[in-house]
Each structure stands twice: as structure tokens, then as C-alpha cells.
Design a protein around this nucleic acid. Sequence first.
DNA 1: CGAATCTTGACGGGATCCGTACACAGGGGG
DNA 2: CCCCCTGTGTACGGATCCCGTCAAGATTCG
Lengths: 222, 222
Amino acid sequence: MTRILVVDDEPQILRALRINLAARHYEVAVAPDGASALRAAVDATPDLVILDLGLPDLDGVDVIHGLRGWTTVPIIVLSGRAGNQDKIEALDAGADDYVTKPFGIDELLARVRAVTRRTAIQEAELATIELGDHVIDLTSKTVSGDVRLTPTEWHILELLLRNPGKLISQRQVLTEVWGSRFVKETHYLRQYMAQLRRKLERDPAHPEHLITEPGMGYRFTP
Amino acid sequence: MTRILVVDDEPQILRALRINLAARHYEVAVAPDGASALRAAVDATPDLVILDLGLPDLDGVDVIHGLRGWTTVPIIVLSGRAGNQDKIEALDAGADDYVTKPFGIDELLARVRAVTRRTAIQEAELATIELGDHVIDLTSKTVSGDVRLTPTEWHILELLLRNPGKLISQRQVLTEVWGSRFVKETHYLRQYMAQLRRKLERDPAHPEHLITEPGMGYRFTP
DNA sequence: CGAATCTTGACGGGATCCGTACACAGGGGG
DNA sequence: CCCCCTGTGTACGGATCCCGTCAAGATTCG
């Protein structure tokens, strides 16, 4: 049984989510602010956290940091502001996905399924990963079918594949691969994403697994 | 029964791992620092070592070297820092896998299964190895067909052949064969790889088994 | 002493990376 | 409605790095 912790200060949203999630047979715990959210995460050990960024007591990013200090539980962030800066900060802090209010309940449920599926995959097997027609082995650095990748390509691909389904900000990739001085050089990244798609995707013009989230980053969808 | 030695200075982590591993029917030994870890590795002869890099007494990389001096026991490294430099140093020193804290216990268990499975396969197939037209016996250090190898050539070849299909970085070979002060002297390695290919490959100009992965290292392909 | 082995140095070809440039799509505002 | 602007995908050429190879001096060991 999947346990979900919902953190939001608006009673209506809290109620709507509890009802909808319970109807899908999720076990739901709720918290109205950041402090009680951190306590509830310890007590309830949820499998997923849905976190509103606009809390009365703590900054949402601080809550993410508080959780990431000791757990890798997936976090889906909700925010009323559509600004990109918030989203990127949340993702860099370690959030897994992001939904902007107002949102349809179906959209949220789809993200919930995506995230829970990703952790299930990770637990089951991380030796080899399938991507389109290819099988990728991260430990031995091999790709099926006579595909060869350069060091930089491996570096980027590994970051995405080790976080299946998770939205990775461009900033995250650039600091990881090139270093923090290169966060502005997004064209490096575009270059290599195109290269990876050419080598791995069935139809590079319409990628199925190495997905772009405009304004945000990239995502590997199994 | 698989014996696992867990080395970590944080009591909580030590306890969590012991309980979780014992529940999966692994036999668990623990050590709180580097010195006792090296002793415990002698006494308990573990089949796998889980090693935290942030130990109070010794640098984690030194512990890896201390173990690698006399055993090929698989090592999974834990680290609090996500920095790439640590990761590269640990893997070059001879670690088999790398997990960043905080980590899910299921992720670690998956890696444990992956590593034990890999080494089990490896040991079973280690008697004699075919490479092109030649048959190589690592225990008796002989090659079929009147081919003689020098000590240094054996050292390099053995490292590659004991990790079939796996990518071995140049740093790894250099530290293993010449010592860590020689990681810059890649031309040593080029020299000997050419030598090995001349002696073993059908067409040394187009090697089929001792493969170069540009920018990364070498790989033995069976 | 001599032969095998190990250590250096230098050089050319090729792959990779970097930087610039341009086409295209979508959204917002004039 | 059109234009601009942002964000993205794609192409191309030069600079740089990496690797294989030849050659030769130094060292070890029989």
C-alpha cells in the first residue's frame, strides 16, 4: 500500500486531495504546515510527498532540504506562482516533479503514478535500463547494438537514467557535467541532448524517452 | 551464505544496515573505522564490503587500497558528498560501485544483489579465457601458441580479463600497475596496450578484444 | 657482457569538444 | 493580426585533446 503525505495550508485543497487519493486506494496523511510536515514524514514514513510551496511557516525549499537530509522519498511540488525561478530552485533542492496551480486532479494523479513507478523500477533493477530499442548498462558503460558514447554523453545520460521519471533542471546538468561556472551555457546541453537522441531514440525528432520540459529541463521516461 | 562487512562510523546507519541485511539472510560483520575494517576483512573474509568514505581515522581511498593489496573482494562505497572527484578516486582505487547518501535501503540492496551476481559469474568463468586465436590461463600464467608475456603485460592483461566487458579507466590501470603517482603517465599504458595487441590480437591495427574507449579507458570484450 | 624489459620522448591522424550561427515553434504585447 | 522575444533544435568548422606508433636511452638480470 502506497502512503502519500500531503502538505498544504488550504483546507479545501487538502480535502480534495485526500478524497481523490483515497478513492485511488492510496493511504493518505496530511499536514498543514512545514514543521508538522517534517514531523509527519518521520512518523508516517510516506512513499511520496506532495508539497505546496506556499506554506505559512517555512519556505518550501527549506522543507525539501529538511527532507533530503535523511531520505530520498519522492517529492512532487505544488505552487501557485507560475514563475520559473521557484520551480528551478525546488528541483535543484531535490524535488522530483512540479505541478502549477490551478491543476487538474488527473494531471496530478498522472505524476503520482509516474513517480511511484520510477522508484519501483529503481528498486527492482538498476543494472540495465531499456531505452527504445537499446539496452544500456551503466556499470559496464555499454549500449546494445554497436552504439558508442563519448565521455560527456555518458555523463549526461547517467544523470538522467539514475533518476528515471524525475525532472532534472538544465542548471543541474550543467553544474554536474561542466561545473557551476557554466550554468549559462545551455547550448552545450542542447548540443549533447540532440546527439544522445540521434544515437538512442527511434525517431530523434520526436523523442519518446529523453523528453524536454520547456523552460525547466529534461526528463528520462522509461 | 554471503558475508558482508559494513564499515561506517555513524551508529544509526550501521544499525539500519545490519538489521536490513540480516533480514535478507546476509551474514553481517561491522566495523566503525578504517583500522578495524582492515582487521575485520582478514578475520571475517567477507564476500562483499560496504564502505563509508567519511571515516574518522583513515581516508576511505586508503582503505580501498589496503584491501586491494591482497584481495579482490567487491567493494560498494558510500559517500555523503556527491562530488565527482571522490567518486572517480574511489572507483579508480578499485571500488565496484558507488552510492551517494542519502540513499534508499532498497537501492543499496539492489546494488548488493548486482555486485554479488556479477562476481559469482566472474569466478565461475575465470579458469581459462579465449582471446582471438589464443587461450589464456590466468592461474598458471600461460598463453597458448608460444606467446610469452612480461610481468607488466600480465598485470595489465589480468586486470582487464578479470572484468570482462567492463570499462576500466586508464587511471585504474595506472594506479593498479604503477601506483597512484603515475596517473598522468598515460603513455606507459599506450605502449603496453600496443604490445599486448601485437602479441594477442589477430589484427593489431583493428583489435577485436582489447578495445579502446576514447577518453575513458579500455575494455576486454570476450 | 648481452638481451630482455622498462622508461622516455616525439609526432601524426582522428575523434571530441567548443563556439558561432541560424531555423523553428510558442506566447505575449503592441 | 503581426511582430518580437524566449527557448529549443540543428548544422558546421576550427581548436584541442587523445591515442597509436616509432625510436631510442636506461635499467635489470641472467
